[in-house]
């Protein structure tokens, strides 16, 4: 495969990646269907922003946000069925069971752990100890601007954390499990090694009941953009959306079997961060996964980071003890 030059890199040399918006598939069907799939994403974003900006305090609660999140996911299931991006990503019974198993773990076990050790605990402390007067310069800003700045800050952190995961071996061991998925659908964000799930769950669990209004708006802003990244939905959304926001197309390149492709589009919400930091590829990919798309069982997903770490350290020690032995060449990353 030749691949396509994007900046200084060749994308799609190992595995097919479609580069360039003009080469993407389009939504097929009647006028109404095409209209819906052109304006759905911007319309939902505007609706959610308006809701959280004008919702009275009695409604503007975390439980409402969780309820909206669940309802919205259910709606996206329908969209995946009406307008799938790839037939080869079709949801099967087994995929659904396995995906929902991870979702269920997140909503039960990890949520319970989070209540005791995670974000809920420190968020409560921070919110209680917060000297709101010192942050008047921030809290006096328009609500929407506050929310945007919160999501921007969170996404800059996410970008570098994620990029670090792809560049530092111990972190990559943990994150690579998530990259073994071979097809996308809205639940695939929940799949990964238990360490990663717990770390993310503890960090952004966000199940505490009291949150400032701006944080709730920020949360739904982030959701209205990044929830699509693992979706198997074909949209015709106007170009400006994909210029600013992370899309399922961008994220499919990140999950591509192509090595350089997978080292692109690290953001969660704002793809312009990847543009600024030089890792953006405006493309899409259908062939996903690691090691030629090998399937990883749930059991292997659970133990892979540990067993791989054990194998690697054993090989390292053996190289040190027997420098001349045949295994002395350092394996490629």
């Amino acid at each position: 495969m030749d691949g396509v030059r994007v900046g200084k890199r060749i994308i799609g040399a190992d595995s097919p990646v479609t580069v360039g918006w003009e080469n993407f598939g389009r939504v097929e069907g009647g006028t109404v269907k095409r209209f819906i799939f052109t304006w759905f994403q911007p319309a939902v974003l505007v609706a959610l922003v308006l809701f959280w900006m004008y919702a009275p305090e009695s409604i503007a609660k975390t439980s409402t946000a969780i309820g909206i999140g669940i309802g919205f996911k259910a709606l996206l299931y329908v969209l995946e069925w009406v307008s799938p991006r790839y037939k080869s990503w079709r949801l099967t019974w087994k995929e659904l069971v396995v995906d929902l198993f991870y979702v269920a773990i997140a909503y039960t076990l990890i949520r319970a752990v989070g209540k005791h050790f995670g974000s809920d605990v420190w968020a409560e402390h921070i919110l209680a100890a917060f000297n709101w007067e010192k942050f008047a310069w921030f809290t006096d800003m328009p609500l929407l601007l506050q929310a945007f700045l919160i999501t921007l800050f969170a996404d800059i952190c996410y970008y570098w954390m994620h990029r670090g995961m792809h560049n530092w071996y111990p972190l990559w061991l943990t994150h690579s499990v998530h990259h073994y998925i071979t097809q996308l659908n809205i639940n695939k964000g929940s799949i990964g090694s238990p360490i990663e799930i717990f770390l993310i769950g503890l960090g952004i669990g966000g199940f505490f009941d009291f949150l400032p209004h701006a944080a709730l708006l920020a949360g739904s802003l982030g959701m209205a953009i990044s929830i699509y990244q693992h979706a198997n939905i074909r949209f015709n959304t106007p170009r400006w959306w994909g210029y600013v926001f992370n899309t399922t197309e961008h994220h499919s390149v990140h999950h591509s079997q192509d090595f350089e492709g997978s080292r692109s589009n690290y953001c969660n919400t704002y793809i312009f961060l990847d543009r600024i930091f030089g890792t953006c590829v405006d493309g899409e990919a259908e062939v996903l996964g690691m090691e030629g798309g090998r399937r990883m069982s749930i059991w292997e997903q659970m133990h892979y980071p540990f067993t791989e770490a054990w194998k690697t350290s054993k090989a390292f020690v053996q190289r040190r003890l027997h420098p001349g032995a045949s295994g002395s060449t350092v394996p490629a990353e």
Binding site: V97, Y107, T108, A112
Partner: peptide, 25 residues
Amino acid sequence: FLGVAWLLDESRTPSFVFTGIFAFL
């Protein structure tokens, strides 16, 4: 997930919901 509901009081509702979902599935 019934076991989870029994063990972890704060996860009761979602655990019961997923018990139902998986039984149905």
